[in-house]
Amino acid sequence: MVDSSERVTVSVTDGVADVRLNRPEKRNALDLETFAALALAGERLKTEPGVRVVVLSGEGPDFCAGLDFTAFQAMRDGQPFSAPAKLPPSTGPARAVAQRAVYVWTELPVPVIAAVRGNALGGGLQITLGADIRIVSPDARLSVFEAAWGLIPDMTGTQLLPELVGRDVAKELTFTARVVSGEEAARIGLATRTDPDPLAAAFTMAGEIARHNPDAIRAAKRLLELAGRTDLASGFAAEQKEIAALIGSPNQVEAVAARFEKRPPRFKDI
């Protein structure tokens, strides 16, 4: 079991990790402790035995309303808003703690589903960019809100957002800081789809994913993360390497046997 903190709670049931921002009285606003807690939770889940899927959400009516007001007060007063965090050394491209709070979910070997209701503004929206899938309520409020505070999205947003919505739409959202509904977010690719109860929908999807061969799901995530980021020859070669490792492996054989025998599969987790 992964330890929980006051800022981020983590529990694991039947292969599904339930990760929640836990400052509902502050609309799950981001402070230094929350950045560190998110990054640390993700790092620990990378090696947590038996985890097959992660559902990332916020406690209470909001996913995350963005940066805590104390940060803006510090900026107004000319004080730095930064502090060292006790995190393991980064082996990926993200180095800053706030960037790692987002990108760690991309680095997880298993799928991550973000369930968004209420506000996902500024840094809150950027956290969702680290997920593989985003399920949002139709009336959710999402915004690349940093320009309203005289800032830029610096939690991986400038690099990950264009992959989802295209460069021109990413610029429009960033330059204007306008708020979009969950319905519009789904139309423009900022969200995967809408659901009146995004958390329930996320857990239903997570259960479906957890019933598949975990080796195949991990391989699929690795390959899909390569798409568009490497040349086709390298991508096709990676496909062949992954499929060669899967065919005839114990979990793949179990998947086939379970289908023929019309029973739930009994996979062995990594």
Rank of each mutant, 00 (worst) to 15 (best):
M1G: 11
V2T: 11
D3Y: 11
E6I: 13
R7N: 12
R7G: 02
R7W: 14
S11C: 06
V12R: 03
D14S: 13
G15Q: 07
V16S: 00
R20V: 07
R20Y: 05
N22E: 09
E25R: 07
L32V: 13
T34W: 03
F35E: 15
A37F: 02
L40Y: 00
R44A: 08
R44G: 02
T47K: 02
V51H: 01
V53S: 03
L56D: 02
E59I: 09
P61I: 14
D62R: 02
L67N: 04
F69I: 15
T70L: 15
F72V: 08
Q73C: 11
M75H: 15
R76M: 14
P84V: 05
A85T: 06
P88Y: 04
P89E: 13
S90Q: 02
G92T: 10
G92D: 12
V97H: 04
A98T: 12
R100L: 12
A101V: 08
V102R: 04
V104I: 15
T106V: 09
T106S: 08
T106P: 05
P109Q: 06
V112A: 04
V112S: 00
I113E: 03
A114V: 05
N119S: 15
A120Q: 01
L121R: 01
I127C: 01
T128D: 05
L129N: 00
G130N: 06
D132K: 03
R134G: 06
V136N: 03
S137I: 01
R141C: 10
L142I: 10
V144K: 02
F145I: 05
A147C: 14
G150A: 14
L151Y: 08
I152H: 08
T156N: 08
G157A: 07
T158A: 10
L160F: 08
L164Q: 07
D168Q: 09
A170V: 00
A170S: 06
K171F: 05
E172N: 03
L173D: 01
T176C: 00
A186N: 01
A186C: 06
I188A: 01
G189C: 06
T192D: 04
R193P: 05
T194P: 05
D195M: 10
P196L: 11
D197H: 09
P198Q: 09
A201R: 00
A206R: 00
A210L: 08
R211M: 13
P214N: 08
D215R: 00
D215V: 09
D215K: 08
I217E: 12
R218M: 14
R218D: 09
A219R: 00
A220G: 07
L224T: 14
L224S: 14
E225W: 11
E225K: 08
L226N: 03
G228Y: 13
R229C: 11
R229Y: 13
D231K: 05
D231L: 11
L232P: 03
L232S: 10
A237P: 04
A238F: 08
L246V: 12
L246P: 06
I247A: 11
G248C: 02
S249C: 10
N251H: 07
Q252F: 12
Q252D: 12
A255F: 11
A255K: 07
R259S: 14
R259N: 11
F260K: 15
R263S: 06
R263L: 09
P265A: 11
R266F: 07
I270W: 12
I270E: 14
